[in-house]
Simulated assay, not measured.
Amino acid sequence: MLKTMQKHGVTLALFAALATGLTAVVNALTKDTIEQQAVAQQKLLFDQVISPDSYDNNIQTSCVVVNDSPLGKGERHIYVARKGQQPIAVVMETTAPDGYSGAIQLLVAADFNGKVLGSRVTAHHETPGLGDKIETRLSDWITHFAGKTIQGNDDPSWAVKKDGGQFDQFTGATITPRAVVNAVKRAGLFAKTLPAQVDNLPVCGAQP
């Protein structure tokens, strides 16, 4: 009986080692492909919020970090678009913390004069059929920020129509669009402060 148990134990150990080794091999073989696909998907998303013809650098590698900013708590990545080495706009990761069902993650592109170039929702938990109209697959609502300029923090047009602003709310759902409008506005205003500091911000992935 003891020999049988030992034999089974050795067999299980060998099987576990083989499975672990196989998993490691698969991960090694697919790692580069997965990373390439992630980069390609990010580029497609960037192209939706900022025209690739407007800058001439590799915006995906021109990444800096801000912490606990108007973009949200914790670390946020900012991608700097340059023309002839001159910063002309940014693509920012930002959060609307006050969505109906929790935080809404966004990508917002803006120049340094308060003009929003584009915005997209990247993650949310809003109610299907109501708040989820912030997704482009369901509605073009999120695209209406592009080309609009924020005159200042008290700009009354940067609100949903129910609050006297220019942006539609959704039938039966005002909290979600209100949260997104406010987040895009905060990001656009923050972009106006970046020219003086963008070249001094830490680079993404740099050790402190």
Results as ranks from 00 to 15, higher is better:
G99T: 08
G74V: 13
P208W: 04
D155E: 13
G131R: 00
T171V: 15
R137Y: 12
F145A: 02
G118N: 05
T174M: 14
A81C: 01
A110D: 00
D53E: 11
P52R: 05
I150D: 13
Q42T: 12
R137C: 10
G72Q: 00
L117K: 11
A28L: 10
V90N: 03
S119K: 09
R76K: 10
R137M: 08
T20Q: 06
K161I: 01
A16Y: 08
V65A: 08
G21I: 07
V90F: 02
K133Y: 15
F15C: 15
K83S: 09
K185W: 07
Q6R: 15
T61G: 04
F167R: 08
L14C: 13
A159N: 15
D132A: 10
K148R: 15
V180E: 06
D140Y: 05
T127I: 08
A103I: 04
Q86D: 07
I134N: 02
K162P: 03
T94L: 09
E75L: 07
T94G: 14
V90M: 08
G165D: 01
L194C: 04
A183C: 05
V26E: 11
D32K: 14
K161L: 03
W141H: 11
T95L: 12
P195L: 05
I142G: 00
A187D: 01
A146Y: 03
A19F: 07
E126P: 07
A179Q: 01
V39R: 09
A173T: 11
N113I: 04
Y55F: 15
L45G: 03
C63T: 05
G205F: 07
Q60E: 14
P156Y: 10
V116E: 04
T149G: 02
G152K: 02
A24K: 09
K148D: 13
V203E: 13
I78V: 09
P128W: 04
A146V: 03
G164E: 08
D68V: 12
M1D: 13
G118H: 02
V116I: 15
T23R: 11
K43S: 10
L14T: 14
G99W: 03
A13E: 08
T127A: 09
N113L: 04
N153T: 13
A110Q: 01
V80E: 06
M1Q: 11
A40S: 15
L106V: 04
K3L: 13
P97E: 06
V203A: 09
